[in-house]
Amino acid sequence: MSIEALDWAFKLNRTDVSSTMKLVLLVLADFAGDEDVAFPRQTTISSRSMLTREAVNKNLKKLEGVGLIKATGRTHATGATRSSEYKLNMLASSRHDPRDTDRGVNRDHPQGVNDNHRGENDDHTRSDRGSQGGVNDDHTLNLPLEPSEEPPIKNRVRKTRPWPEDYRQQFWALYPKKPGDSRKEAWAKLDKIEREDEVEFDDIMAGLKHYADRMAAEVRLDRKNVKFIAAAVVWLNQARWETEQPVAPKPTGGAWSAVNGKRVTAI
């Protein structure tokens, strides 16, 4: 792990880099060595970032497109595919970011003075503002803080009622237990449903209660029926809460027959 690479990735702030791109870049930086090169598999990046393989591949291409990384394919001696090599272009953020001309640093003036002499008074004495945008004694950039040009993020207006903070735990506690079921996948899908804001959490839990009761009854009849419990992420992907109905109570006694007024056992 390269502390310098992680620090660079964390502090990266460019208009052409989305939050998802930055997340993937942070994972690469976490795997990078002293040479700023990382070799994680895409499945590993997907696991660390909680993104799909498709999303990881898409954002790796975007990062390469803006010049922040260079990806090189690798193969084993047998010809089998290995994980790619990802070279972090840590200088690219200053080379390609158009906002650099407003920050008191460019290639022509490595000591933090632009062509408009920002950071230097008319009598060529260094101003306090210039010292904030120059180079520290350890040759690291000391960039001034600037007001954000992005509009403030407004609080999201939900279409459904807010979900409880522990909605993941509530769901998982009620879902029928099946050996090998993935809580992580189920929670990721549940998070997506919450963000999409199209479904009431109470509706999901109501349908899940019916499903849990039904599967509990099936398992009581035969323990082998546990294999018919759907994986939680599958249940969510198929929106099964929309079709689940309460378990109909089984008759406990006979029913009066219309013939001869006798009581007969219901079938």
Rank of each mutant, 00 (worst) to 15 (best):
S84P: 00
S84V: 02
S84D: 10
S84T: 11
S84L: 07
S84N: 15
E85R: 12
E85I: 02
E85H: 04
Y86R: 03
Y86S: 09
Y86E: 14
Y86W: 11
Y86A: 09
Y86H: 09
K87P: 01
K87R: 12
K87M: 03
K87A: 05
K87Y: 03
K87T: 05
K87D: 01
K87W: 00
K87C: 02
L88I: 05
L88D: 13
L88C: 15
N89K: 13
N89Y: 08
N89F: 08
N89R: 14
N89D: 13
N89G: 06
N89P: 07
N89L: 09
M90F: 01
M90A: 11
M90T: 15
M90N: 10
M90E: 05
L91S: 10
L91W: 06
L91F: 05
A92I: 03
A92R: 01
S93N: 15
S94L: 07
S94V: 04
S94E: 11
S94P: 00
S94A: 12
R95M: 07
R95N: 01
R95T: 04
R95S: 05
H96V: 11
H96T: 12
H96Q: 05
H96F: 08
H96L: 15
H96D: 10
D97M: 03
D97S: 08
D97T: 00
D97E: 02
P98Y: 07
P98Q: 12
P98A: 14
P98N: 14
R99G: 03
R99A: 11
R99L: 08
D100S: 05
D100H: 00
D100G: 02
D100V: 08
D100I: 03
D100P: 00
D100F: 01
T101K: 08
D102G: 15
D102Y: 12
D102E: 08
D102H: 14
R103L: 13
R103K: 10
R103Y: 09
G104R: 13
V105R: 10
V105N: 01
V105E: 00
V105S: 02
N106T: 02
N106K: 00
R107I: 10
R107V: 09
D108A: 15
D108C: 09
H109G: 15
H109K: 11
H109I: 11
P110H: 06
P110K: 14
P110C: 10
P110G: 07
P110N: 10
Q111D: 11
Q111H: 09
G112C: 10
G112N: 09
G112T: 03
G112M: 07
G112Q: 08
V113H: 07
V113Q: 06
V113P: 04
N114F: 01
N114E: 02
N114W: 00
